[in-house]
Design a protein around this nucleic acid. Sequence first.
DNA 1: ACTGAAATTATGCGAGC
DNA 2: GCTCGCATAATTTCAGT
Lengths: 152, 152
Amino acid sequence: MPVVDEIDHRILNLLAADARMPNNALAAEVGIAPSTCLGRIRALRESGVIRGYHADIDQAALGRPMQAMISVRIQSGARERIGAFLDRIRRRPEVHNVYFLSGANDFLLHVGAADAHMLRDFVVDQLSVHPEIALTETNLIFEHYRGEATGL
Amino acid sequence: MPVVDEIDHRILNLLAADARMPNNALAAEVGIAPSTCLGRIRALRESGVIRGYHADIDQAALGRPMQAMISVRIQSGARERIGAFLDRIRRRPEVHNVYFLSGANDFLLHVGAADAHMLRDFVVDQLSVHPEIALTETNLIFEHYRGEATGL
DNA sequence: ACTGAAATTATGCGAGC
DNA sequence: GCTCGCATAATTTCAGT
């Protein structure tokens, strides 16, 4: 069980805002020596508190200007078989996030696509073909904002 | 409109997977000189293709083991006044993502909380108090997976 | 776009609190 | 046990070519 103190907290917030911030600057900001700061970051990384560092890419520039949120409902009898389905779906390049939820729908898939055609193909070829899937509902994402404080 | 070629594409995928990957390693991986690679990354950053670099933090370690997706529907007459509401809500530390959608519900708020109490307080104090908000529906997030290929 | 030098930054180690 | 300061290694950055 990792112990995260006040200073760790500040380091994490700074890294969530800018993961490429130099260790020196971080150390100065939180008021400890660079080597100490590095040790803390390494411990946080190894204990799993820091899960990784990711660049946030403008999807439109990558040829995927369209994003959608797809609600997926599983057949009530097939809840045990969804593990394999999930593992495959989350590895697809179109899929940005998978939320496994309580409520009437079981999943939310956040996906990117070049156009409506590609989106339709994704729903038909990746989702509807599976007998475990009871229904899907696709909604376009007009805008997507990230939170500021602590990064996910 | 920025031009993103094959090599840029590979750089972006690598940075999406690991934003702290050293510039030299990146350059070697994509087969160009470090200085050239740096120039490309800078251009991508300045043109907005790379929006930022963020550490992915385990929310449980930060004292927010609970996550929820809240569907929000706006009063049909109040669609013009939601800008200010959005600006405020997305700055709250509990809020990880705001999705502005088509369909019956107008927003999806992805939030973190320490417990059910805190979550209830967020819904009541930040959402229900606004007359512009017609209804909210809160669903717990059991699990959240990030996509692998290209980072968002 | 590459090469090589210079500045900046990261890392490991021994000492001190 | 955690922190620091210094020495070394690695990386980034900016010339010139």
